[in-house]
Design a protein around this nucleic acid. Structure first.
Lengths: 347, 347
DNA sequence: TTGTACGCGTTATCAG
DNA sequence: CTGATAACGCGTACAA
């Protein structure tokens, strides 16, 4: 493998000059530049990233932290990753998905051995110890999501508040006044996951504000959990005519089971999936309305923010909220006011 | 950040000695070792991975190549990644998921800039240009999957042949003699994806051998594709009593639509999902039988093989085939011989 | 058992 | 505009 010295010798210049043309960090006369470029081509020169990193004290690598205990890397996370990768590549960085066990040691090692310039955190918890560790390690980072008090941190997050509000808007325009919000029970118990908390708070606030009936219920984040929940819903909230679901994995089972119980979507019940994808929505029958999670955009913005911080071109803190588009699907209909609720829906 | 020099000074030894205790690459007397360790602790010394890599000419980083065009990173891939990560960590390596655009330049850069020691390839195509590129670049790599002629390469792959055979065994023991294999149409057109080809060949061979009826059909790899396929099946293979599905994303829609058409699973049709997960199987109703893809194990073995190659502790080529466990689910039943096939199933 | 000194391939500084 | 040359932080013969 050819080094800069080889190229320099071949072109009859010094290594410094070669470096200048490689990075064009300094002006170089057209003549020598040509000679250097020729030499590089002839020798098939590839710059050594490790040496480069050692000398410049930056690797231009960004780690997207992936908690290894979390066994499901959703579609959403994949999109997020590719969005981030694209943006990084445009900015001269590369982002890699880095598996980090949940012990505190691994994160310290990762951030202190100099192999990465910065970190992007996803699946941020309300009280996330990783944030403190990164602050202590003085590693530049940005959040995808928010912890309890992110006011002093760079973050990009989904505008769950807006998404909930907009979903309710849409349903209200169809005459619905009696809502249920379905969340995932396991996640909440875990510690306090931002989206879950924020969605619930917004949901309750909006309902109160507008004089709507709003009830929050939960079930396990599995298809079976959703199935079981179908009858729970009929028992606990028979009058509801619309449901917002923040529980991807339960949604399909839930809707399928509803059908068996004689409840028709959307005739008897309108359904909106929050923060999911059209792919998931298409798994259900009928295809569900969904407020999409703007995954790729989040990834892109996360990287742009972090790179801005790394390159020093970012002065103030960045706090961005993004909303995903609304996909209508086949699960919305005018509220069945005349029918008297779910209990008699199929009668 | 403390360097080795700092530690050496503090402990009153030379940097070489510090290096010896850090890597224990040479015997060190208990006394000085203790002094060095104390100094390291006091100064909170962390070795610089970049300098280490430059000097030793190895980074101990393995890249798991992730094709960015592929927007769905399945559950399976996630498991695979975590399995690989675990194994790597035990062996003193770290594996990261590296996004690689599909242009040939990116892969060359990745492998020639010295940032990674080796590569693991997943989603290997029958004719995969990446293999040639890696060979040309002399980058150590192992395949998860197989290209057309992998005889000279290290690989770990799913034993699709065994899985198909075992599935047919099970169904045959229930009296089934008339099978359909459902594959994904898009993937095959793409180029020739190993699993698809191998499963089909095995399916046809086993059926021929045992005098069974076996028909291969395809549909799009989407829920909608599966739905459409339900009626296709009734038209094209009304006599079939069992179906093997190598099409994750279509399975749920397919089964759901079958129900609407009055075909009952498993009474009228037995269903086995091939190379998927219980999570996907649970999305369907009833829960499907599934020959699981041993994802985590594949990841683990892939890393073990590659590391063995990197460390030179692996003499011969490694060719490993793994089978996943069989999950019974609720989609298997005795063949409805008396009923005369799907066409009249619900009559 | 420990120390010296050089090399790894670039970048960056400073002089010309 | 170009060239020497000193870092960058660590591994490792070789010498002591």
């Amino acid at each position: 493998m050819a080094t800069m010295r080889d190229v320099a010798r071949r072109a009859g210049v010094s290594v410094a000059t070669v470096s200048f043309v490689v990075n064009d960090s300094k002006p170089v006369s057209p003549g020598t530049r040509l000679r250097v470029e020729a030499a590089m081509a002839e020798l098939d020169f590839r710059r050594n990233a490790v040496a480069r990193a050692l000398a410049s004290r930056r690797t231009r690598i960004i780690a997207l932290l992936f908690p290894v205990l979390q066994h499901r890397l959703s579609d959403t996370a994949a999109r997020f990753f590719t969005g981030a990768a694209e943006a990084a590549s445009e900015l001269g960085y590369t982002v890699v998905l880095w598996p980090v066990p949940n012990d505190s040691e691994s994160l310290r090692e990762l951030t202190s051995d100099g192999l990465i310039d910065g970190v992007i955190l996803m699946e941020v918890q309300l009280d996330d110890h990783r944030v403190d560790q990164l602050l202590a390690a003085k590693t530049p980072f940005t959040l995808i999501g928010r912890n309890r008090d992110p006011s002093a941190l760079d973050y990009v997050d989904v505008d769950f508040e807006g998404m909930v509000e907009q979903s309710i808007d849409r349903l209200q325009s169809l005459g619905h006044r009696d809502f249920v919000l379905l969340e995932e029970s396991d996640r909440l118990e875990l510690e306090g996951y931002g989206p879950v908390v924020r969605v619930e708070e917004t949901f309750q606030a909006v309902c109160a504000e507008r004089g709507l009936r709003g009830r929050t219920l939960r079930c396990a984040g599995t298809p079976a959990g959703g199935r079981t929940f179908a009858s729970t819903l009929l028992a606990e909230a028979p009058h509801a005519t619309a449901i917002l679901i923040l529980n991807d994995h339960a949604a399909v089972g839930f809707v399928s089971e509803l059908g068996k119980l004689g409840v028709s979507v959307p005739r008897d019940l309108s359904v909106v999936l929050i923060g999911s994808t059209v792919e998931v929505s298409a798994m259900a029958d009928p295809e569900l309305a969904v407020m999409r999670l703007p995954a790729a955009e989040l990834g892109r913005m996360g990287v742009e923010t972090l790179v801005g911080r790394l390159d020093g071109t970012l002065g103030d803190l960045r706090h961005d909220l993004l909303m995903g588009g609304f996909h209508e699907g086949e699960s919305l209909a005018v509220a069945p006011v005349a029918r008297g609720g779910l209990g008699r829906a199929s009668a």
